[in-house]
């Protein structure tokens, strides 16, 4: 789909848990064209601080464009202060989407760390009606980092949660959950999104067990369009851009 740039109205921007916010933008032309795993590039304000746009995975597409974000720095802090009725300049949909499971796949395992849950709701929306065993392994620092379980349950996911402090689910890392579930590599597909150490652990476990899949990667980004080559990531096929070649890459491709 062609990339669209527009100025759109915010319809909702609410804190949902801890430092997590849920933003809805009335951008149907972008929202309707979004594929699972794609992102939008948002100009937080018209000024020079922050200077760059910020990329956000699309949490849900459709008539409304939804973003789940974690307030981690000055840009997301400014975003969190936006009220419904205010506008945002958005470019999207951008980037390479997740590959949907083919007919040999029986089990889909989604592995999310913290706000890394964001790209998976659109993905499960897309595969909701397929006869697949959908497993969501969801990790976070604490209970407040575990959100939107109902939406995933509604999409037919079996959910296993792990938190660093044990305040929700089991105490430990999400990569630990992954290694305990018996899976048949020939019929399983993995999708992972989260912090780099988590992705590295998933990549190494999947490689040992011959499992295939994809991961969604993050890097500081300027243009988001593949122009500046600033968001390069080292892959087994040389440097690639996260914005244009990614953010979704084959699980084995990124070099950690």
């Amino acid at each position: 789909m062609k990339k669209i740039q527009g100025v759109y109205k915010i319809t909702a921007n609410q804190k949902i848990s801890g430092s997590y916010y849920h933003l809805k933008i009335a951008a149907p032309d972008i929202g309707r064209g979004v594929l699972p795993g794609q992102f939008v590039h948002v100009r937080v304000n018209d000024g020079l601080e922050p200077f760059f746009r910020r990329p956000f995975s699309v949490f849900r597409g459709g008539k409304s464009l939804e973003i789940l974000y974690d307030v981690v720095g000055p840009a997301t802090k400014q975003l969190a202060a936006k009220r419904p009725g205010e506008t945002l300049d958005v470019i999207g949909p951008l980037g390479h989407a997740f590959t949907l499971p083919d007919k040999n796949i029986r089990v889909v395992v989604l592995i999310a760390g913290g706000v890394g849950i964001a790209p998976f709701l659109t993905l499960t929306d897309k595969i909701r009606l397929k006869k697949l065993d959908k497993i969501l392994l969801y990790g976070g620092r604490t209970k407040a980092n575990i959100v939107s379980l109902k939406a995933f349950r509604d999409n037919g996911c079996r959910i296993h949660v792990a938190t660093d402090d044990g305040s929700a689910g089991v105490k430990g890392r999400v990569s630990g959950l992954f290694s305990k579930i018996p899976l048949d590599p020939s019929t399983t597909l993995i999708y992972a999104c989260g912090p780099r150490p988590m992705l590295a652990a998933i990549q190494s476990f999947a490689a040992q067990h011959g499992m295939r899949g994809e991961l969604s990667y993050e890097e500081v980004m300027a243009c988001g369009l593949g122009a500046c080559l600033g968001c390069a990531v080292q892959t087994r096929k040389g440097y690639k851009t996260v914005c244009h070649d990614g953010p979704v890459f084959p699980l084995e491709e990124v070099v950690f």
Partner: peptide, 23 residues
């Protein structure tokens, strides 16, 4: 040219620094 190792860009006040390495 394959360019420089990441991170290749950093945001600054009213600007950016790049070290793409003429990829």
């Amino acid at each position: 040219r394959q360019g420089n190792p990441p991170p290749r860009i950093v945001e600054t006040p009213a600007g950016m620094i790049n070290a793409i390495g003429i990829e």
